[in-house]
Design a protein around this nucleic acid. Structure first.
Lengths: 355, 355
DNA sequence: TTGTACGCGTTATCAC
DNA sequence: GTGATAACGCGTACAA
């Protein structure tokens, strides 16, 4: 049997001090230099390591923030997790990440597990639990929401300003000269939001939306829904609800011999890592995942006293690459910039959506 | 001030039982049906939730396995984490994931943090700490290694059978008729391993390797190193040490007007999510990340009694897509299969490397 | 079957 | 400055 880990008692004995003094020395309390010295030596000699479990029991705080995330495979959520760790690390805290695969039941269990572990806070990404349930499940612990699926809640929340992102896309396409623009919408809440924003932005510009197709937020979803968009001979541009659908559309277009961007402009949403490596490189809207994570972490750590400015909106950036160009039967396009940029250009952030 | 969480004492009082009985009831011990009933009601009434911190203190086990991973942005490590969670979840345990961004210093800190939290085991992915240091840092807790960077250790370990993967690539290219094959190697340990395996496989087939170029394991690394490969007019195929470099090479080739696979075949390694969406879709070697994670988790939970079969080797699969084809000045290629497959084909796993 | 009482390793509150 | 000592919430001998 391995010799059990040294405890604070062992250190105290070895250093000829009381455990109280050792505890103070370890936590930066007032201790005479001599004692501190002996204690440090004892710690080094024994290889003592503080037991954070015992510490958590007495202090009532664990230095742990629970993070519930749909999955970690897609880069977006991973970046949010990274952002959360950024701010926790700065405070000597840590994240405990649990995935729920978008299943409410798994989300419920995750909250239970994390609460049982006495986390100091909870960050829920893409949560879909009803507010009342969330409130009882969370009990006393601070909660912050990121990109929640569902109606407004009383919890502090960060989300992407989808409306601003969509507006930037529409403005970009219109400035290129496109007049009949289709949309490939995802079935989730954010998909619907983007579609509505799309229609609204178009109407504001005095245009009627082209074909509006709904499908899954996946590559296959994009590919299978593609015909319903491509059959409309007048459509010169398609805005996809996310990058994954855009890839499916791109493939479907290629199979039909439709050249992008010459015959058709395509825009995505998210700016996944690989969007720039597609052929053609995808024009899309970049989600500031890491920053969303950072603000969410700050929101759990210091919950806003009053419920002002909920949800916080983070503005995305339009990333123009080579999947967009003036429409073939151009002419109107000549009014805008001279030529499409040869390399990647990031449009300045737009105004946050007024609320 | 919020009413503090109910404890096992509260439940005991409410149910008119002792805490021992409550504890037994909660942990599936022997309790009279009547008592169990009253206790369950009390639990529901009070909304009692077990405090895993206190429980961990007394049992000495936390049900937590610490996972140290280079990063979570790339899908490969995320999949490994997923695999680890698969087997932990089945046992009611959980993973605490910490990223080290490939910095030994951060890895050291991560081990400290996780040990202080009394994890029941440690899975280190891509670890580069020397064995002796690892051993003292880990203290008594079980350790499993995945894709460790550095020489063989006494710890249980899983790794990909790189040699088998590379052999499959070389066999594929040779069967297509390629005779002069270049290689783009990554600077890390696995990069060197793959390069050596590449040279060996080629020699076994009676061929001399084409140009061997070393660079970073990134898209830029692939792009900047590309000229040194492409300037060799005789090279008809290039095997890249990973998918990210392959993307860089693909772009560089396109810029030079080199058609893939018509003028040049390109093979990657890893099969990242997006490899199939490249143009042309990338032929590559699929890493079974999730399965690597699963076996690693099993290794920590039940450490092998004797040090047999270390490291465990997992066999990758060759995924043939459209970035490989017979060389332009073919003829020799006509001996193989009739035509390149129109769609994705997964070659059967090859023999594990003999040891 | 049930209850009492001790201990897990630490912090915090007191006196000294 | 320092040292006893009482919690923290729970599991588990052991006795009843």
């Amino acid at each position: 049997m391995p010799p059990r880990n040294p405890t604070i008692h062992d250190v105290a004995r070895e250093a000829g001090a009381s455990i109280a003094t050792v505890s103070r020395a370890l936590n930066g309390g007032v201790v005479s230099p001599a004692a501190r010295d002996r204690i440090e030596q004892a710690v080094a000699l024994l290889g003592y390591r503080r037991n954070d479990v015992a510490r958590g029991l007495v202090t009532g705080r664990t230095g742990l923030v629970g993070v519930i995330v749909p999955d970690l495979i897609g880069p977006l959520y991973a970046q949010m997790a990274r952002g959360i760790e950024d701010v926790l690390e700065a405070r000597g805290m840590h994240a405990m990440v649990v995935t729920d695969h978008r299943e409410p039941e798994a989300e419920r269990r995750a909250v239970e597990v994390l609460r049982a572990r006495q986390v100091d806070g909870l960050v829920l990404i893409g949560s879909s639990l009803p507010e009342t349930e969330l409130r009882t499940a969370a009990g006393g612990v601070p909660v912050a929401l990121v990109q929640r699926e569902g109606p407004q809640t009383g919890f502090p929340e960060v989300r992407l300003d989808d409306v601003a992102g969509v507006r930037a896309v529409v403005a970009h396409l219109i400035s290129l000269g496109h007049r009949r623009i289709g949309h490939l919408a995802g079935r989730r809440r954010d998909g619907v939001e983007r579609r509505d924003a799309f229609v609204a932005a178009l109407r504001t510009a005095g245009l009627e939306p082209g074909p509006l197709v709904e499908s899954d937020f996946t590559e296959d979803g994009g590919a299978t829904a593609a015909p319903r968009l491509l059959d409309d001979g007048d459509v010169t541009a398609v805005f996809c609800g996310n990058d994954r659908m855009a890839v499916g559309l791109l493939h479907a277009a290629a199979n039909r011999g439709i050249a992008v961007p010459h015959d058709l402009s395509v825009v995505g949403f998210d700016d996944l890592t690989w969007a720039r490596y597609l052929t053609p490189a995808l024009t899309t809207v970049r989600q500031p995942g890491r920053e969303l994570g950072r603000t969410a972490a700050r929101l759990v750590l210091v919950p806003p006293t009053d419920a002002v400015a909920t949800p916080l909106l983070r503005t995305p950036e339009l990333v123009v690459r080579s999947s967009t160009a003036p429409p073939r039967a151009a002419g109107a396009a000549r009014t805008g910039a001279a030529a499409p940029p040869a390399e990647e250009v990031i449009a300045p952030p737009h105004e946050p959506t007024p609320r």
